[in-house]
Nucleic acid binder design. Structure first.
Length: 326
DNA sequence: CGAGTTTGACCAGCGC
DNA sequence: GCGCTGGTCAAACTCG
């Protein structure tokens, strides 16, 4: 995945949160309009320009026409400059965000390695939140695994997601596109808030488990810990593959979706439609459809990448978490 | 009535 | 061996 893309989108999203008028569409609209300006270079006259040429019932002189074009060009330059500045700001913001994320991950790793005694299974190799299988305990002792079938080593992968919820919301439910069955709840020593235990109930053979607990630092943040990897597609994608329903707006993997803070809804229906349309009929660049097309095309190319959605959500939730804990 | 949730009991790992 | 702790089970309960 293009790492710069993530930075840009995070910035745009952040901007949308801060400004009441800004939005995904607004931000991308600038690009669309800049494309519009590019069209001036083509031999075909711009609709607006041609309208202004005949509006006074006479042909404008070459001087006047070039003056208008120069003015247009200056505006394009100014816009270009503005966009360059925005891009620069986005890159800076991305770098800051990334360093904060790394900081946070380091802090979490330190916490996990702290004296708090954990079971063997949980202290296996931790690499940036992802744990690679612990072959020592999973494959060496067959007798032991027969004795303890339950201890079937899931340690293939552990990931973590932070989800902001209302404090009043005590359900401990993190909607991530999969189907979960709660099988237990426990109050742990280091956190007064109960921890809920979930198993993936969509496929009986799916080994994935999920633990959800409120953060000690910020109780409005749910910490969801996923153990193992799904051996099936998310229910939403299975539905989509069967053709019975829309391709849902539910992201893949451990990406948190339920959030009372900034909500990211990825409607892939439009993106698919637009990429199909892209092959058959391309809207004219200067029409409102063109703007819409550009926006959809950009959004679709980003949202098609499941890594993007996961990384974006992780980055945002990580930032929210660090902001609240400061 | 079936599926999902709640909750107390039980089990296993770990440190002392 | 004992106590503490986290994880899981399963009967009881709830809900649509």
């Amino acid at each position: 995945m293009n790492i710069l893309d993530l930075g840009l989108c995070v910035k745009i999203e952040k901007k949308a949160m801060n400004s009441s008028s800004s939005s995904w569409v607004d931000s991308l609209d600038l690009n669309a309009s800049s494309t519009k300006f590019l069209q001036l270079e083509t031999p075909v006259s711009h609709p607006n320009t041609s309208n202004s040429l005949i509006v006074f019932g006479r042909k404008l002189s070459v001087k006047e026409e070039s003056g208008a074009l120069m003015e247009e060009l200056n505006r394009a330059n100014a816009e270009n400059k503005k966009l360059t500045e925005m891009l620069k700001a986005m890159c800076e913001s991305y770098n800051a965000l990334q360093s904060q994320l790394v900081d946070l991950m380091n802090k979490n790793t330190e916490k996990e390695l702290s004296p708090t005694k954990k079971r063997k299974s949980e202290t296996s190799n931790n690499n940036n939140g992802n744990i690679i299988g612990n072959s020592e305990s999973s494959s060496t002792d067959e007798e032991e695994s027969c004795k303890k079938p339950r201890e079937e080593i899931i340690k293939a992968k552990i990931s973590r997601a932070y989800v902001r919820t209302e404090l009043s919301d005590t359900s401990l439910v993190v909607k991530d596109g999969y189907q979960w069955r709660k099988y237990g709840q426990k109050v742990t020593r280091d956190n007064p808030c109960p921890r809920a235990y979930f198993k993936c109930s969509f496929a009986p053979s799916c080994p994935v488990k999920k633990k959800v607990q409120r953060s000690v630092d910020d109780q409005s943040v749910l910490v969801a810990t996923y153990e193992g990897e799904h051996n099936h597609l998310p229910p939403s994608q299975i539905e989509a593959t069967s053709g019975s329903s829309r391709l849902g707006s539910v992201p893949v993997g451990s990406t948190p979706v339920k959030s009372s803070g900034p909500t990211i809804t990825l409607d892939l229906t439009n993106s698919i439609k637009s990429s199909d349309e892209a092959r058959n009929s391309k809207p004219k660049l200067d029409s409102p459809e063109a703007t819409q097309y550009l926006v959809e095309h950009m959004a679709s190319s980003l949202t098609k990448d499941p890594n993007f959605t996961a990384a974006l959500a992780a980055a945002i939730s990580g930032r929210m978490f660090s902001t609240n804990s400061n």
